[in-house]
Design a protein around this nucleic acid. Sequence first.
DNA 1: GTTATTTTTTGAACGATGTTCATTTTTTTG
DNA 2: CAAAAAAATGAACATCGTTCAAAAAATAAC
Lengths: 199, 199
Amino acid sequence: MTGRRELQRQALKDRLFEAAEARIARDGLSSLRARDVTSDAGCALGGLYSAYEDMDDLILRVNAATLRHLGDLLEQATQASSDPEERLVGLGLRYLEFARTNMNLWSAVFDHRMQHDRDIPDWYNEEQKVLFAHIGSSLSDLQPAMDTASLSIRVRTLFAAVHGIVAIGLREKIIGLPSDIIANEVEAIIRLMVRGAQA
Amino acid sequence: MTGRRELQRQALKDRLFEAAEARIARDGLSSLRARDVTSDAGCALGGLYSAYEDMDDLILRVNAATLRHLGDLLEQATQASSDPEERLVGLGLRYLEFARTNMNLWSAVFDHRMQHDRDIPDWYNEEQKVLFAHIGSSLSDLQPAMDTASLSIRVRTLFAAVHGIVAIGLREKIIGLPSDIIANEVEAIIRLMVRGAQA
DNA sequence: GTTATTTTTTGAACGATGTTCATTTTTTTG
DNA sequence: CAAAAAAATGAACATCGTTCAAAAAATAAC
């Protein structure tokens, strides 16, 4: 009976992934320990290194999944309205919502640094691009005449501005105030940038 | 001859500080090692813990100095123009300039996380406020009618947006492109927010 | 089905790192 | 100069991620 090995191999990989994801979600990236993950997954310490290259690899897999989950949520915003400005506002507000309800997983995406000074693998950089794709398509609808280079700069700026507001807002834990202050700020800056770009 | 002890004590503290600051500036926060710092400062490993509480303490002292240096640069922007909008643009462009020319020290301010989950000491949080003070005074000149609460929100949003653009821009190492793309983006978003707030 | 081969799993051991503390050295005091 | 106080030292400890020789398990060969 061949294929059994491959099955067990994948099962271990999955258990390690789920253990790491659960640990990050519960306690944050900074308290993730190889020994805890392998203990949760029911394997020996060294088993982690037969399933993943190292801790960086495992963390990047979890972060990539987080980016995909975020992408799924943003997908809804793309379908929610036919007006580009409203779609962009929807994207921003959903981004804030995702950051709030998945704070530790979301923080891990931006807090993680590769050990030594190793490069981020190409497959992960591809996952990152999903974030910008949604913004790009709406912004392109809004300004069909804009060339690709200028558009990609604008996309990055718009994302960076919204991300900055969400990141600092959540770190300082300013949530729940009248009709949600942070959401108002996010919406305001998006409408501002959209209209500013049109002028 | 009294006071000699206090003098030597302060001298060691200074040497450790300068060693840590130089190491962070050269190699980045992530490769800062207690043994390297004490070796540079010419004392034993344990000496660090007679001068500072722990590594967190030492790092926060360096980061506080970085914030003061940044504050000094921003001070120039406040005096450069009497027009609030131009002052805010000056603040943003100087912030970008500082981040570029002091990338590792500047990154350390935002990358550092306290060990375990200890709180950031009050004296350090006070240093942080200097960042917002300059923005607040210019924004207040621009809109004297705005109440304090709304103003402080706007200040935080403006800072967060600019910081996000600078942080992502520098991380992706997109520098030196035609007439400085990032600077253009920073200037554009500040003018947009200023005019948007006036409407 | 039994043995040999290949693969996987194991966990002790290693190196790196921040921190502590008994001992030694230095400085101040009487 | 001798006694007391303070500071400096660096070996030892705890906690990490990572490695790898040995044991266990799975597959292949006959």
